[in-house]
Write a protein that binds this DNA or RNA. Structure first.
Length: 611
DNA sequence: GTGAAGGGCCAC
DNA sequence: AAACGTGGCCCTTCAC
């Protein structure tokens, strides 16, 4: 090793505050020998702080500059620029890749999905054995929206260390990095060690170790999915958009015409333009026309008026077209990454306090169900989409939690679940169940997951309050243990002010015991969170199992929608991938649901569609 | 100009 | 008086 391969980093750091600060000692690694030495020392430790610095936020747009690994006592800053022009091919970086891939060496990082994507794309390897302090912080906060989760916030909260993040946005493209930049980089990796210690204890104390592992285990699958992206047929999308544009233009014109009929005098310069997207102006115009306006102008409130007042129908028509045009139009095309020709959306792993994912830029979880939109997401030439969803997963979870024999039987029968429950509730042979009976059962089945009451159930079925109550009595009379479970769940959340999913995921629930509305809302949270959250647990478990079973195949995870998983693969391999996907989903389900069979619907298609 | 809040509506 | 859960995106409105 040459003397130049390590440059001594500055050791002194003035404490910024009277609180704790870090002594930062790091070694800057710029050649292959240095890498070998560094990795040899790093390998002696079971847990390493891990961070990266990049020239951009998007791995398809920028370059990976630094990889930092720290034992807490010594910290190594690997300069990727100096260790190989082409980082993926660089053999001097091989020992670093080996370290990152080795699940036996724990890597502690903050918001690891970011670093994992960069390493995957620019170093060409997976990172395994990750502990993410960001996700840990979110799990520990358990739904407390006041808590922040930036590295600076988390470090302050758990270790009382103040971090200055001003170098985060500095120029990581510079050919020579400043001492201050290197120190900043080293510090962020080093601080992970004490953070990990504190947070691991806290996870343990809160009973969150299982859910933490569940979350950490699906970091790599999600990072890969974001890198994979999804293919959108732009010609199809534009074709659909043009149709909607035409409809929108006609509807806008006609609506403008109808609304201005209520305005007393058309001005000399033509009719006064109404902003059709302004609730205020539209409401005023409708009132002028003598339309009896409900409390809001929401579609379900206006719908009943549409028959009597054509202008209301026209408004709904315009709104639908406007929504399609703005939310699912040109903007979606702008998300296509030039480097890949695909859409790489952002998935937030703990998007909701229940544990569900959320998705943005664009939100692939809210693409309209209509074939006109879904068919635009298709497999490229020579490829197929393998699409699978869980059948009634939330109701199966509920059946399992409650242990209700009749509810479980309805699933074990393997027949149409809603018809089966209708048969039980209305005491009718399944073949004699009417469409109405099935529909009532179906809506009730869905409603109870959200904690529906008789009045809401009546509203959505058109039943009178007393008929709705009657039907619900019959329902819960059939499913006594389900009723008992739901009451219990509602009661215990009020007593304990927490709810948990099957993995142990925690939600703290705050409510005002003197406020009926607040109590009702807390109770519904308590009923819904364990069910919705366990469904999320199962999906996350599935992603890890799937990731492992797709390794070495042409299969790539491209999208997830709460209970649905989409994999793109070579056409020739699609049958085998379908089998793997089904197995991963069912196995994941069994990890959390033992008394009820898990069923999936899997199909192979050229485009995103049902069956 | 920028940002937050609220209405409305898409998904599961 | 009662009130079905979770998100994100687009628009208007209004405050700074």
């Amino acid at each position: 090793m040459t003397a130049a391969s390590y440059e001594l980093g500055a050791i002194l750091v003035a404490p910024m505050t009277p609180e704790r600060s870090l002594d930062i000692q790091f070694q800057y690694v710029t050649d292959a020998d240095g890498v070998l030495r560094a990795v040899e020392e790093l390998r002696r430790e079971g847990t390493l702080g891990f961070d990266t610095e990049t020239t951009e936020l998007d791995p398809y747009k920028g370059k990976l500059r630094l990889v930092q690994l720290s034992t807490g006592r010594s910290t190594y800053v690997f300069d990727v620029f100096k260790l190989g022009e082409d980082a993926r091919a660089s053999s001097s970086l091989a020992p670093v890749r080996g370290l990152l891939e080795d699940a036996a060496v724990k890597k502690v990082a903050h918001n690891a999905r970011f670093d994992l994507k960069w390493v995957r794309h620019h170093l060409g390897c997976e990172t395994n054995g990750v502990f993410d302090t960001f996700l840990a912080s979110v799990l520990i906060a358990a739904g407390d929206g006041d808590r922040r989760h930036s590295l600076a916030d988390v470090a302050k909260f758990f270790t009382d260390i103040e971090l200055d993040k001003s170098e985060q946005v500095s120029d990581w493209n510079a050919s020579e990095l400043s001492q201050s930049q290197l120190m900043y980089a080293a510090r962020d990796a080093q601080v992970m060690l004490s953070l990990h210690e504190q947070m691991a204890d806290r996870l343990c104390a809160d009973g969150l170790t299982r859910v933490a592992d569940l979350e950490f285990d699906c970091l790599m699958p999600i990072a890969e999915m974001e890198l994979n992206g999804i293919f959108l047929d732009t010609d199809r999308w534009r074709e659909q958009l043009d149709k909607v544009k035409a409809i929108q233009a006609v509807a806008a014109n006609e609506l403008q015409e109808l609304l201005s009929a209520g305005v007393a005098q058309a001005s000399l310069f033509g009719r006064p333009e109404i902003n059709l997207d302004s609730q205020q102006q539209v409401t005023d115009a409708l009132v002028n026309l003598g339309v009896p306006m409900p409390n809001s102008t929401r579609a379900w409130e206006l719908q009943p008026l549409a028959e009597k007042y054509p202008v209301v129908g026209k408004l709904l028509e315009y709104r639908a077209a406007q929504k399609s045009m703005t939310s699912f139009g040109e903007n979606t095309l702008e998300f296509i990454e030039p480097a890949t020709g695909r859409i790489h959306a952002d998935f937030r792993q703990i998007g909701a306090p229940t544990g569900r994912f959320s998705c943005s830029n664009p939100n692939l979880q809210q693409i309209p169900h209509e074939a006109a939109y879904r068919r635009c997401f298709r497999a490229p030439e020579g490829r197929k989409l393998v699409i699978a969803d869980y059948s009634q997963i939330e109701l199966r979870i509920l059946a399992d939690f409650s242990g209700d024999e009749n509810f479980i039987k309805a699933f074990e029968s393997g027949r149409d679940f809603h018809a089966m429950t209708a048969s039980q509730v209305f005491n009718t042979p399944i073949d004699d169940v009417t469409a109405d009976q099935r529909s009532f059962a179906k809506r009730l089945n869905f409603g109870i997951v959200y904690g529906v009451g008789a009045s809401r159930f009546g509203l959505m079925t058109g039943l009178s309050q007393s008929d709705a109550e009657d039907t619900m009595r019959k329902y819960f009379g059939t499913y006594r243990k389900l009723d008992e479970y739901l009451r219990n769940a509602g009661r215990s959340v009020l007593d304990d002010r927490i709810a948990r999913t099957a993995s142990g995921r925690l939600l703290r629930i705050r409510y005002d015991e003197n406020d009926r509305a607040s109590i009702g809302s807390a109770r519904r949270y308590g009923v819904n969170m364990p069910i919705q959250g366990t469904s999320a647990d199962i999906l996350k478990r599935c992603l890890r199992l799937l990731h492992d079973s797709l390794r070495g195949t042409s299969g790539k995870l491209v999208n997830i929608v709460h209970d649905e998983v989409m994999v793109e693969c070579d056409a020739a391999e699609s049958d085998a991938i379908a089998t793997k996907l089904d197995a991963a989903m069912v196995d994941a389900g069994r990890d959390f649901v033992s008394r009820v069979p898990i069923k999936t619907d899997v199909h192979i298609a050229d485009e995103w569609s049902k069956a």
